[in-house]
Amino acid sequence: MMAERRLSSREESLLEVQVEARLLRVKMVLLGSSGVGKSSLALRFSKDEFKASAPTIGCAYLTQVVCLHNARIRFEIWDTAGEEKYHSVTPLYYRGAHAALVVYDICKRESFARAQLWLKELEKQYFPGETVVGLVGNKADLSDGRKVSLQEGYRLAESKGLLFMETSAKSGQQISELLMTIAERVQKSTREDRGLVEWREVESVGLHQGERPHPLGTCCLVGP
């Protein structure tokens, strides 16, 4: 598994993208306030494990390969720190992402409010429809202490045309469904030409690492 993850060096994957890739690289970023379970979700996605973890520092990078009927998708998951001190860096992580998951804790009202702010932030960065944005209510296993109803989450997601799901990283509930849905949506959105341009752009960050990339370069191409 590890070997497979490492299999694609930058050059190879660039090649693959150009030749109607079989292994697609999808950058996915997890956003949301601290303590909502982003790292636990990421760990579920990549290793199907659950471990209580200390607050993330900066950003953790994990990968997972998902097989769809006609392609394999290699998710590069950027699990960002929810703490405020890292907010100024998060653009670094979500720039050029194909999928963004905004996570809130169904037992914490304020995390839901915070999620709405994150969604606004993302709207500034992405064209609707180009980046798959998902709203995720986590900790569904603690529904006794629920403070944000299913309807509320659903309504918010619907009003913005987002993917919505309630999950539990602890129990594993809805995790693989979420990942598969994202994979399908990303694949669909990248079939259009625009998508491919965007992909190459992400690659170029890695290829010309020597030069300092334009801080806003990728944003401008991708964003409005």
Binding site: S39, P55, T56, I57, G58, A60, Y61
Partner: peptide, 18 residues
């Protein structure tokens, strides 16, 4: 100390300003 204090490092690769 930073490395010792965060178990999150064990999950994957960390990229953080320091």
């Amino acid at each position: 100390n930073l490395i010792g204090a965060s178990s999150a490092f064990q999950a994957g690769e960390i990229w953080t300003p320091i």
